[in-house]
Design a protein around this nucleic acid. Sequence first.
DNA 1: CGAACACTTGACTAGAGTCAATGTGTGTGG
DNA 2: CCACACACATTGACTCTAGTCAAGTGTTCG
Lengths: 201, 201
Amino acid sequence: VICDGAVTHEACVLLRGFAFRQKMLPNGSRQILAFHMAGDFVDLQSLYLVRMDHTLETLGAALVGFIPHAAIKQAIAGSTRLLAAFWRDTLIDAAIFREWVTNIGQRSAYSRLAHVICEVAWRLKARGLGAPDHFRFPVTQAHLADATGITTVHVNRVLNGLKKAGLVKYNGGEWRIPDLSALEAAAGFDPAYLHSETLTV
Amino acid sequence: VICDGAVTHEACVLLRGFAFRQKMLPNGSRQILAFHMAGDFVDLQSLYLVRMDHTLETLGAALVGFIPHAAIKQAIAGSTRLLAAFWRDTLIDAAIFREWVTNIGQRSAYSRLAHVICEVAWRLKARGLGAPDHFRFPVTQAHLADATGITTVHVNRVLNGLKKAGLVKYNGGEWRIPDLSALEAAAGFDPAYLHSETLTV
DNA sequence: CGAACACTTGACTAGAGTCAATGTGTGTGG
DNA sequence: CCACACACATTGACTCTAGTCAAGTGTTCG
């Protein structure tokens, strides 16, 4: 959707489907920085960070809307509440990055994977997408590998471990989580960082 | 300075010294999320993310100022430029978190350490603190370990490797970098993510 | 049908962790 | 002023998690 290094004059919104942000390294490896789902104001940061420092890509078919920066700035100028909501949105993004740093830096491969799945489950739930224990999330194991900083081979093994432990079931992009709290325990997941508490605007 | 879970009504600024953000995990391990230096508006995010999801701590002696949220909001309401500058600041923080995710997720211990040191060197330079090849940065090896997601023992070994390669010299919080571009090469460092280009307010 | 892609599995390797001991400098109190 | 404690740094020996290499097995799709 938007490439690393690009200079943009409009922000984009994910209307349907999924997307993710990634950085490519000179040595060919890739780090996935975040996953996005329908309803995410994916690129608000471009408002003041005009040159992209990473790439935005969709995860399968998706519908993306673009809004000129000028229009957003005008809307913000007219509404303190809107400003607060938008700024807050970018701050939550940052909070999620912080949690990812922690996830990748401190947890075992097993917990890391569980954590990423928990996050997606929670965020989808918060948005009312999919059932509480069953949702669509079309990632390949290679995506999960690059998101967690482990290799695809190891993702495969660890994911099988999670499956054998009865914590997740997945099949072609369809995920089932029979017992979310058990998965959270395995992940060391604490949803506080998602800041989904009532807005204090 | 501010503890995880706390609810604040003022933001803080680092006037002198250094600080860092960290998350503690239930198992006792700790992840350092960012380092801050004199002049950083350390806690602007608290403006709209009132409950802290991590802890802010100083690195040795430091001077910290507090500004009530109400005062900031008032100032922002009166100046579009100020709003842009502040928002931008939090967005750069997020950009740095993204780079850290990449750093920890994809690079070797050797490059990771080099990368953290490069970042500090660049940010100090941008702010005119210390000489280009010589600065003060009072971290212990344990701090570096928790920042990069490796153990203190391994930090010690890797840091010795960097020292033997002639890339860094350090002594009780004093750092010397004889050849920054060589260190950058070892780190795979690209300063683009710091977004220090001229402000486009 | 065959190419491309995702997933799986096994065997081997290596980078980093763990455990444990020792060194070194600094500050404090008797 | 020395003894001691403490925090930080260093080193060695061993272990283990995760990476690498390589060979399959589906499965989809033109």
